[in-house]
Amino acid sequence: MKEIAYRDALREALREEMRRDQTVFLLGEDIGRFWGGAFKVTNGLAEEFGDERVRDTPISESTIIGAAVGAAITGMRPVAEIMFGDLTALAMDQIANQAAKIRYMFGGQAKAPMVIRTPFGGGVNIASHHSQSLEAWFMHVPGLYVAVPSTPYDAKGLLKTAIRGDNPVFFCEHKLLYPLKGMIPEEEYTLPFGKADVKREGKDVTVFATMFMVHQALTAAERLSRENISVEVIDPRTLVPLDKAALLASVKKTGRIVIVSEDCKTAGVSAEIAAIVAEEAIDYLDAPIKRVAEPDTPIPFSPPLEKFVIPDENRIIKAVKEIV
């Protein structure tokens, strides 16, 4: 095992897959040799693989994704970076109407093996256009897979799987996680999609969380353990496909669930998870489903305002205590 930061784990996945498969290439804004990616994920890759395979693009999000679609359906495996998740709005037609539907519309003739990497999440005071968490938009489009890694280990293993797969993958990263360190094996590994990870076992209440919220949930669980409340933290790792079996098994074990998600509450990730639990495990619940999510506002700039809207360990603890 070795210790590595989340951003470096992502870069290892890209490097290994680019070495393994000549059809893998990268495109995006400022990902090349002069900048190495706004969050330095692709730093150094242009030096190793050349400018042809690590392509700096114009500021044309729609065309970054469109070009990835065109390349993917003709034999390549592009990995596109959108500098901030918020900017996927500019590319929404290419993501939701083209990449996601190109296989289905053409009766299974085409495949679009492509990855769209982008960072979501707040906490760095860059306001409404650079801080959102929009995973739910992409969960709502059949044809896309949605990965939400919370650790360096998950990030590397899932990204390798994403690149090797034959479907378009919307690969969510989190700004606050890039410097986070964790252990990964020295040897090569991949992680399957649709397989949740129990980040902490417990028996009193299930806390479902993704990405940065997993760490908030783990901190909350640690604090609650001192009060003899045993929290199980479930990290789905991919929202599509979703490991429903693991979610439901945990709920059936604990009889309680708090769903934590760094996005707006209305029609967000937490709404979908709550609906699944209500539909398929309501008889096992000993308390109402609790959701900890953002209020339905844009992300504000000023630190006290931003801190107020983004879920944290204290809000998770409060929600847990309301139902145990």
Partner: peptide, 23 residues
């Protein structure tokens, strides 16, 4: 490579196919 019914959406896709050819 198929018909898209979103007006103009095929342009970047064609560029991507061109990129694939080049690579």
């Amino acid at each position: 490579l198929g018909a898209t019914a979103v007006v103009g959406a095929g342009v970047p896709i064609a560029s991507g196919a061109g990129l694939s050819i080049k690579l």
